[in-house]
Write a protein that binds this DNA or RNA. Structure first.
Lengths: 204, 204
DNA sequence: ATGGCTATGTATAAATA
DNA sequence: TTATTTATACATAGCCA
């Protein structure tokens, strides 16, 4: 890849080492970019020069996203080795009442020495918290949906009530209109059955 | 660098994309290693495949050292450059839109060989699904709360409407009562509420 | 430190097994 | 799939400004 084949070992000559650093660094970044584009993957490259200067490439906006993801993954891997030990104990925490869950969680948090728990203890703890989390989520969703149901019921009642009131007003207006018509015709009203009418009105 | 010049854009054919990924990934790692040795510098490369599998190279023992160094560096630079700008963007950077989440999940499910994944692969997969799950939950809660808000608004409106109608009826009744009192005093009925009656009369 | 310039070594695309 | 082959494109060592 040059006039001469170079052995892969530290270049002792300062200036040619720096020259090579500059060239190969750019090459590496270019390759990283091509890889990320061609294969549609996330790539990050971090280079610290011997004098501590930072050079970076990231296929995403910021490198922090990728490094965070990296750290999450590393943590997750640690978790795997812990979980391999423990498959039986994880089952018994499965179902508790809400109270039991809260009690347990409280108990756990009381413990001052959370830092020196064994892996098995931590797996157990994790399961309990996960149970608590599931229960909490379940209850949250339940309450939200209940709330919505109640509101729908209320809405229905209010709409019905509204309709009744509307009808009432409608019939009153209609009567008024009729009377107006009668008045205009100068027809003498018969009082005879109006008592009944009034009574029903009072009912509403 | 091959039989044909390739344009640097996403390779659409799945199998050749994977082939290229494998080759170029190895090439990139090799180059990174050479750079770190030749120039005596610290280099780190992080690659996440589309399936979320992690590939890494680090010139030091562990990548965490370099990423930590990177984060210290970035933090220092951020302090110098901009204090206000970054807080909002960084929040959104870690969250995906619903579409992105669905896309990612779909991508995952496309893969045919889910059965022979290693434990590490499965952990990565788990992380991605967990992200998707979190987003889904977030969206669910958001929609439920929105729904409740809307229903509360509706309820308020209906109650107000109801009140208006009630008042209207109230005032009508009051008017009627007054008229009745007048009628009783005059011992002569007012025709006003006998519209219904009269209508039937007209019919006859 | 980069930025050409070549000659040459390497990486890799496509084909093949 | 993954490995090997082969023809090319690319990267870069050494050199000069």
């Amino acid at each position: 890849m040059g006039r001469k084949k170079v052995e892969i070992k530290r270049i002792e000559d300062r200036s040619s080492r720096h020259a090579t650093f500059s060239k190969r660094r750019n090459g590496l970044m270019k390759k990283a970019k091509q890889l990320s584009i061609l294969c549609d993957v996330d790539v990050a490259v971090i280079v610290f020069s011997s004098r501590g200067r930072l050079f970076e490439f990231s296929s995403t906006n910021s490198l922090t996203g990728i490094t965070q993801r990296y750290h999450r993954n590393v943590k997750a891997e640690d978790k795997v080795s812990a979980e391999v030990n423990d498959t039986e104990e994880s089952k018994y925490a499965s179902f508790m009442t809400m109270e039991e869950v809260l009690q347990t969680v409280e108990k756990q948090l009381e413990e001052p020495d959370v830092d020196d728990l064994s892996i098995t203890d931590l797996v157990h703890l994790e399961n309990q918290f996960e149970t608590a989390l599931t229960q909490t989520r379940f209850r949250k969703t339940h309450l939200l949906i209940e709330s919505i149901k109640n509101l729908h019921d209320k809405e229905k009642l209010l709409i019905e009530e509204n309709k009744v009131l509307d009808d009432e007003i409608g019939s009153i207006k209609k009567k008024e209109a009729n009377e107006m018509a009668v008045d205009l015709n100068n027809i003498a009203p018969t009082p005879m059955d109006c008592g009944q009418q009034r009574e029903t009105l009072y009912f509403l």
